[in-house]
Simulated assay, not measured.
Amino acid sequence: MQLYLPIADIPVNIFLILAMGAAVGFVSGMFGIGGGFLMTPLLIFIGIAPAVAVASVASHIAASSFSGAISYWRRRAIDPALALVLLTGGSVGTALGVWTFTQLRALGQLDLMIALSYVALLTTVGGLMFWEGLRAMMRTRAGVLPPRRSHGWIHGLPLKMRFKRSKIYLSVIPIVVVGIVIGFIGAIMGIGGGFILVPIMIYLLRVPTSTVIGTSMVLTLVTMAFATLLHAATNHLVDIVLALILMVGGVTGAQFGARAGQKIRGEQLRLLLGLLVLAVGVRFAIELVIRPDELFTIRETGGAG
């Protein structure tokens, strides 16, 4: 069943888009991430313009994160104070990201920047996550305890605040900076940033895993909803029809993913997520170097005087 997308300006199979939304929603709920790192490339691979994909996927990420966040809120697995500090930086980062997105689009460099950013970010993060998950699994099989974590220089910064739900005492400075970075990346690349945020919170900020995923989803929910509004108001690239179809599939899939994620061990989740992120990054790299079928483009030029 074909459906015409008004902003993307192409017909698509509605069942294919629903299935993509459900699959990415499942991944989102399972790993506690927004899923945009997977959905945006999938849309680009089926022919949707990168700018439209990034702007429209933000709403899908927000919907999937909302569904998952409710599930974690009911289990008291969200730290409200930590989420609020993250959102302080995340809102600023999102606004800066949308502004940069607009400037790159005006210069005609947006599509290339999105592709290069995906290759660099996903291959690096995916490789690191895969290696860390593999090492954790090997330590578990060998019966070796993980190395004891010691507090680094971050825990010596001023402006400390006590986060009761997470049971940590930490400076708000690195938390706000992390929020800015995640919001900025999310607005430009159409990703929630959870696959970056979760490792940072666990290994750098020493936030307990019991509150990391739920708190990450709150940040993803708010920043992506904000990014959707900004993209719609400034760039007019949000395809409402596409976004609604993705939301329906995403909300459904996220519920099943959250249940499945509770049955898998932490190191196995990191290994699987690392493989997934790495695979998408490699796919983007291949797309960049493949020789196109058509070696010419059509560009509208001004009329002769």
Rank of each mutant, 00 (worst) to 15 (best):
M1A: 09
A285Q: 10
L3N: 10
G302F: 14
A77R: 07
L107R: 15
K160S: 02
A63T: 12
R75P: 05
A81R: 15
P147Y: 11
R291P: 08
L107S: 15
G183L: 05
M20N: 01
Y169G: 00
L205G: 00
V57M: 04
T100L: 15
M113Q: 08
L145D: 14
R74C: 04
F15S: 03
G34L: 10
S210P: 01
L204P: 06
S216M: 10
L242Q: 03
G190A: 09
F37E: 10
L288F: 07
F195T: 11
F66Q: 05
G34Q: 12
L112S: 11
L16N: 00
L18K: 01
P80S: 10
G126W: 01
G194H: 10
T211N: 09
V24K: 08
M189R: 05
M129H: 04
A51T: 13
L16G: 01
G156H: 06
L107T: 12
V57T: 15
L276P: 07
H231R: 05
I78G: 12
L121K: 14
A23S: 14
I10V: 12
F15Q: 00
D79I: 02
R139G: 05
D79L: 04
H151C: 02
R206V: 08
A69N: 03
K160R: 14
F226N: 11
P199W: 06
G29F: 12
A106Y: 11
S210I: 01
I245S: 00
S150N: 14
W99L: 15
A22M: 04
H236Q: 11
T215W: 02
L128N: 09
L295Q: 14
L86D: 08
S150L: 14
L278F: 15
F15L: 11
G68E: 11
A142H: 10
H60F: 13
I48Q: 04
Q255C: 08
F256T: 08
P158N: 11
P146T: 02
V212H: 11
F184N: 12
S65M: 06
G192C: 10
V144G: 02
L82A: 01
G36K: 15
A58E: 13
V241R: 04
R165P: 06
A187E: 06
Q2R: 02
R74E: 08
V57D: 15
S65T: 06
S56F: 03
R206Y: 07
V98P: 15
A49P: 08
I196W: 02
A233K: 09
R141K: 15
I175V: 15
L86G: 05
F101N: 14
T215D: 01
T100R: 09
G257N: 08
P50I: 03
R149M: 11
L219T: 13
Y4K: 08
L107I: 13
L221M: 14
L157E: 02
R206P: 00
I298A: 13
R165K: 14
L197F: 09
R165T: 13
G183S: 07
V52F: 11
P50G: 03
